[in-house]
Design a protein around this nucleic acid. Structure first.
Length: 550
DNA sequence: AACTACACAA
């Protein structure tokens, strides 16, 4: 190679860094005579991007030392923001505060990018107050300053403040980018605020940025999570460029919304388009097989991950395949998979297994799964309740009582079940037996009336679910007033006619409610969608999209 | 050259 000037050294270091080839980038970096700011910041960013923020900070320390030796005469904003980004990747980093102090000393606090990085660092280290101070102190905020702060509010669940800031941003006439919309739409997805999401979609159309694959995927995701799979599909069809994320979003959306065959069809289309699926894609495909009860197809897909696509299994893949097998009662194969795993099963794998054991009353494996779960997350009430259910279904009532006592002693409280429904952009939340809603009288009257009709049509309340559900301690008559039934009844009363009712629940839907809502969908002639903690149920004409396989 | 970054089932 000919004699290289600093510029060509840097070019090659940057090329290696961009290819995430840290080894060669670092080798060149070490060999380079007269490293400048560019070399240092490029190397640091590469470490952060590859998940090695501590290495980035080590380099920053070295550079600081060289500065004190007089090698550098001035500080550099690029290096400073790279250092802040590294701190942001380390939760609770106190190094960030030191770097902040240094930035103030060398007068870099007027650079807008440094300020964004600083805001982000504080927020990601859990210091929302400090982050907001820096944000407020940023004069001439640009779209990145706004988007970053908005996103951080959503990250920590401060939804209202995030939306408020988004509207402030629009008032300040800062034009959002697809980054901004992605953050806002994600917040809509989490809370299933479809009306709001729709309005945001409208804004995007007006600004002409809905069709990029980045923002388009966020839209597909939002509509899927709100149970509007048709709208998700329309957005997907209209996207001029679809990347792997778009496809994966669509596949998972179909899987969750009770269209496993569509999910698998889109997986085939994806393969035919020549794109290569990644580890996330397979989570969606496997969950489609699980929901459809297509066990052998699922196993075929599972094996293809490694054999055909050469992708290493993740803990999530193992959890998916155990879910697939457990729901089908194929415990022999579950045991084989667990013993062949190179890593320790994660909590989701154990929870899936425990869930399957409840269906098939498999006490032996239930005990094993519960034991593992008690170690991983001793505070989780669901483990106790499910294990108690397995004992109950084996008529081992003393064991059930023992678990109850153990929970009491450890003061483990069950997560209260709640359901909610959005009507005219207002969210109405219900707890079991809730009488706090202003229209409680109408709701209870309607439920009583519907209950009588359901009985006439052959509905039998399933008292088993008094025990089986997480909301279990209710007496039989309380089944009628489970939160999901209250929300559905309110939807029938207050929701616009002819529009599907969409109810959301923080826990899994109760089995009796599942049966009852099937009847309700026919009697009230309504499409009722219930999104519970694990999936969607689309009820129509007395049947559910899950075909009772859940 | 730096800051914000869409997909995953329990």
């Amino acid at each position: 190679m000919p004699q290289r000037d600093p510029c060509s050294w840097n070019t090659i270091i940057a090329a290696y860094s961009n290819a995430n080839n840290l080894v060669d980038a670092r080798r060149l970096f070490e060999d380079m005579p007269g490293k400048d700011h560019f070399s240092w910041s490029t190397m640091m960013s590469a470490y952060s991007r590859c998940g090695l923020p501590l290495e980035a900070l080590k380099l920053y320390g070295k550079k600081q030392f060289l500065m004190s030796e007089g090698v550098f005469t001035c500080s550099d904003k690029f290096t400073a923001s790279a250092a802040l980004a590294a701190c942001a990747a380390i939760p609770c980093s106190i190094r960030g505060k030191e770097i902040h102090a240094h930035i103030l000393r060398v007068n870099l606090e007027s650079d807008i990018v440094v300020l964004s990085a600083l805001t982000d660092m504080y927020a990601k280290c859990g210091r929302m107050g400090n982050a907001r101070c820096v944000f407020d102190a940023t004069l001439e905020k640009d779209v990145v300053s706004w988007t970053g702060m908005i996103g951080r509010y959503f990250d920590c669940g401060r939804r209202e403040e995030g939306f408020k800031l988004f509207s402030d941003m629009l008032i300040n006439r800062v034009r959002p980018t697809e980054f901004t919309f992605a953050a806002v739409l994600d917040a809509c997805s989490v809370s299933a605020a479809e009306e709001l999401g729709k309005q945001v979609h409208g804004n995007m159309v007006r600004m002409g940025i809905e069709s990029s694959s980045f923002a388009g995927s966020a839209l597909v995701h939002m509509y899927s999570k709100c149970g509007s799979i048709e709208k998700a599909s329309v957005v997907f069809q209209r996207m001029p460029r679809r990347d792997l994320v778009s496809w994966t979003t669509m596949i998972s959306g179909y899987a969750q919304n009770g269209h496993p065959e569509e999910a698998l069809r889109y997986y085939e289309l994806l393969l035919r388009s020549g794109m290569k699926p990644d580890h996330v894609t397979f989570v969606g495909v496997l969950s489609a097989c699980t929901h459809a009860g297509l066990v052998d197809k699922g196993l075929e897909v599972f094996h293809s991950i490694k054999d055909e696509f050469g992708i290493a299994y993740t803990g999530d893949h193992y959890a998916c395949v155990v879910d697939l097998l457990s729901r089908a009662g194929r415990f022999q194969e579950v045991e084989e998979i667990i013993s062949s795993m190179p890593t320790k099963p994660n909590k989701f794998l154990w929870a899936s297994l425990l869930g399957g054991c409840r269906i098939y009353r498999n006490l032996k494996l239930a005990k094993m799964a519960a034991k593992a779960l008690f170690e991983i997350e001793p505070e989780n009430a669901a483990t106790y309740v499910t294990l108690a259910n397995v004992y109950a279904s084996n008529n081992m009532w003393e064991e059930v009582e023992r678990i109850r006592q153990r929970m009491q002693k450890k003061q483990i409280e069950k997560n209260p079940g709640s359901s909610w429904i959005e009507i005219k952009r207002q969210t109405h939340v219900f707890l079991v037996g809730d009488k706090s809603h202003p229209r409680t009288d109408e709701i209870y009257l309607l439920l009583k009336k519907l209950h009588r009709r359901m009985r006439e049509e052959g509905y039998v309340p399933d008292i088993n679910y008094v025990l089986h559900d997480v909301e279990d301690e209710q007496k039989e008559e309380d089944l009628v007033y489970h939160s999901e039934k209250l929300a559905v009844a309110f939807g029938i009363i207050a929701g616009p006619a002819g529009v599907p009712l969409k109810v959301f629940k923080n826990l899994r839907i109760c089995g009796d409610c599942h049966t009852a809502i099937k009847f309700l969908s026919r009697i009230a002639d309504r499409v009722i969608v219930v999104r519970d903690s694990s999936r969607f149920h689309h009820f129509k004409d007395g049947a559910c999209s899950c075909r009772d396989y859940w």
